[in-house]
Design a protein around this nucleic acid. Structure first.
Length: 348
DNA sequence: AAGTCATGCAACCGCTTCATA
DNA sequence: TTATGAAGCGGTTGCATGACT
C-alpha cells in the first residue's frame, strides 16, 4: 500500500555511485548482511536511501553477477522466455543465473527487440509481421501441422517454465534446512522432493511427447496430443515415464498421484466431450499441467494458470497481455530465424 | 576540431505485492 | 479485515561514450 518515503527525504544523494560509496556498501553487507534495506544506509554511513542501496547491490555489487557480453545461448534463452513470459524480467532472470533482471531488460530493449524488429518479427507478440515469412517455403497444410505441433510443444514448455519459475520462487521462501515438497503429505523423502517434483513434471512432459509421437507414428491420431495418454492408467504411466527412479519412489509417486486424484484430472477432461477433438486434448493437457503444478506448489488447483492455457490468452500482472495461445506456436520459428542470423551478421 | 546524433546502461520513479500487527 | 511498512518489479530517464558529419 504505502509507498516507501525513504527516497523523499531531503539530503540524500542521488545519481551515480562513487567507488567510495560502493566500498562502504560492499564492506557493510559482507560483514553484516543487508538486513533491513531501510536501516542499512545509516548503519553503513551512506547518504543514500535504502532503495538505492538495494538496487546498487542487486544490480551491480553482488558478487555472483556475471557481467559482459551476453552469449548466444543466453540470447536464445531470453527470446524464448520473453515469448512465453512477456516483460516479466525477474521471472526471465531466474533462468539466467548471474544475470540481473535490469541487465536483461536493458539488453532486450537495446539489442534483442531491435534485432527481432529488423527480422520483421513483432517483439511484443513474437509473431512475424507478415505471414509470408512462414509460408514461403512450405505448403499451407504442412505449415498448419507444424504450427500445431510447435504450439503443443510450446504449451508444454510454457507450463514447464512457469512451474520452474514458481518452484524457484517458492524455494527462495523456504529455509535451506527445510527443503521439502510443497505438498504437506508428500510421501517422497524430503531431502530431494523439490527436485524430484520438478523432475516428475519434466519427465511427464517429455514422456507424453514421446507417447504422442509414437501414436502419431502409428497413425493412431492426427493431432499432436493423445487421448489415450491422458486416460492411461496412472501407475503404468508413472512406471513408464520414470524408470530412473527407485521402485519405492515410483510406488510412492503412484500413491501420491492417486491420493491427489491426479489421474482424474485428465479423465475429467476426457469425459466432457468428443475425445478426438484436438482442442479437448490440448485443454486436457494444459489442465493437467495446470492442476498438477498447482498441486505441487500449493496443494490446490484453484489458482489460475497464466501461461499456456489452451483456452485463453496469457495475462500477466499489470494487464500486459502476451496472447500465448497464438504466440507459443511461433517462438520456435522465431528462434530458427534468429539462429540463422548471428549477432555479427550484417543484419544486426 | 566541433557539433550532433545514437547507443548502452545505471539509476530512479512509482506502482504492486507481500508480510505483519 | 484492514492499515501500514518494506521489498520487489517494470517502465522510464538521464548521463557517458562513441560514431558520424
Amino acid at each position: 500500500m504505502g509507498r516507501s518515503p525513504c527516497c523523499d527525504k531531503v539530503g540524500l544523494k542521488k545519481g551515480p555511485w562513487t567507488p567510495e560509496e560502493d566500498h562502504k556498501l560492499l564492506a557493510y553487507i559482507e560483514e553484516h548482511g543487508h538486513g533491513s534495506w531501510r536501516a542499512l544506509p545509516v548503519k553503513a554511513g551512506l547518504q543514500r536511501c535504502g532503495k538505492s542501496c538495494r538496487l546498487r547491490w542487486t544490480n551491480y555489487l553482488r558478487p555472483d553477477i556475471k557481467r559482459g557480453k551476453f552469449s548466444f545461448q543466453e540470447e536464445q534463452t531470453i527470446i524464448q522466455l520473453h515469448a512465453l513470459l512477456g516483460n516479466r524480467w525477474s521471472a526471465i532472470a531466474t533462468h539466467l543465473p548471474k544475470r540481473t533482471d535490469n541487465e536483461i531488460k536493458n539488453y532486450w530493449n537495446t539489442h534483442l527487440k531491435k534485432r527481432l524488429t529488423k527480422l520483421g518479427i513483432d517483439p511484443v507478440t513474437h509473431k512475424p509481421k507478415s505471414d509470408s515469412l512462414l509460408s514461403s517455403s512450405c505448403s499451407i497444410n504442412s505449415q498448419s501441422k507444424n504450427a500445431a505441433n510447435l504450439s503443443h510443444m510450446a504449451q508444454w514448455e510454457s507450463a514447464r517454465l512457469e512451474a520452474e519459475a514458481r518452484l524457484a520462487k517458492q524455494s527462495k521462501l523456504r529455509s535451506v534446512n527445510q527443503i521439502q515438497c510443497p505438498i504437506s503429505e508428500c510421501p517422497i523423502s524430503t531431502q530431494k522432493s523439490p527436485v524430484v517434483c520438478l523432475d516428475i513434471l519434466t519427465a511427464l512432459n517429455g514422456g507424453l511427447k514421446v507417447l504422442d509421437q509414437n501414436m502419431i507414428n502409428n497413425g493412431e491420431l492426427e493431432s499432436p496430443s493423445s487421448t489415450v495418454s491422458y486416460s492411461e492408467n496412472t501407475s503404468t504411466l508413472v512406471s513408464t515415464l520414470l524408470p530412473e527412479y527407485q521402485e519405492n519412489e515410483t510406488i510412492a509417486f503412484k500413491s501420491l498421484f492417486n491420493d491427489m486424484g491426479v489421474h482424474q484430472l485428465w479423465e475429467q477432461e476426457d469425459t466432457r466431450g468428443n475425445n478426438t477433438d484436438q482442442h479437448v486434448h490440448e485443454n486436457g493437457a494444459n489442465n493437467f499441467i495446470e492442476k498438477f503444478t498447482d498441486l505441487l506448489l500449493n496443494g490446490s488447483a484453484d489458482e489460475s494458470f497464466s501461461c499456456g492455457s489452451g483456452g485463453g490468452e496469457t495475462v500477466d500482472n499489470g494487464g500486459r497481455s502476451s496472447g500465448s495461445e497464438d504466440n507459443n506456436g511461433y517462438w520456435n520459428n522465431i528462434l530458427d530465424l534468429v539462429n540463422v542470423s548471428p549477432s555479427n551478421s550484417s543484419v544486426f
